[in-house]
Amino acid sequence: MKERHPAQYTVKNRCLYIALLEDLDQHNVDRIRARLDALIDECGSNELVFDFSKVSFMDSSGIGMIMGRYRRLLSRNGIIRAVGVNPSVARIMKYSGLYQILRPEFAEAGMREN
């Protein structure tokens, strides 16, 4: 079965923009993680922007992935933002404490369907 890759990546300067195309569960997270880490290393990113506009569902696997990337970026003072977060994904982020590590102003902007 041929499945499309669940994300699209765009690099601008040292900012890596990740347009998530599918639900963030363990299946998709496993497919995203390796490619994302390769790109982070390749372009020395210190800023990640996750675009959640097309994501209707996220579970704890998605939380784990974002926290893991946060730890990776921590050593180079990087930041992580989330945009286009829908209310049900936002609930999961709030409940898990993920909002504490996402840049809050952008997390809020995401909630307003920025």
Binding site: D59, S60, M65, M67, S96
Partner: peptide, 13 residues
């Protein structure tokens, strides 16, 4: 493996 360890917490919540 970066499991967040929140699986059962989510089910419970």
């Amino acid at each position: 493996e970066e499991r967040s360890g929140m699986g059962f917490s989510f089910m419970e919540a």
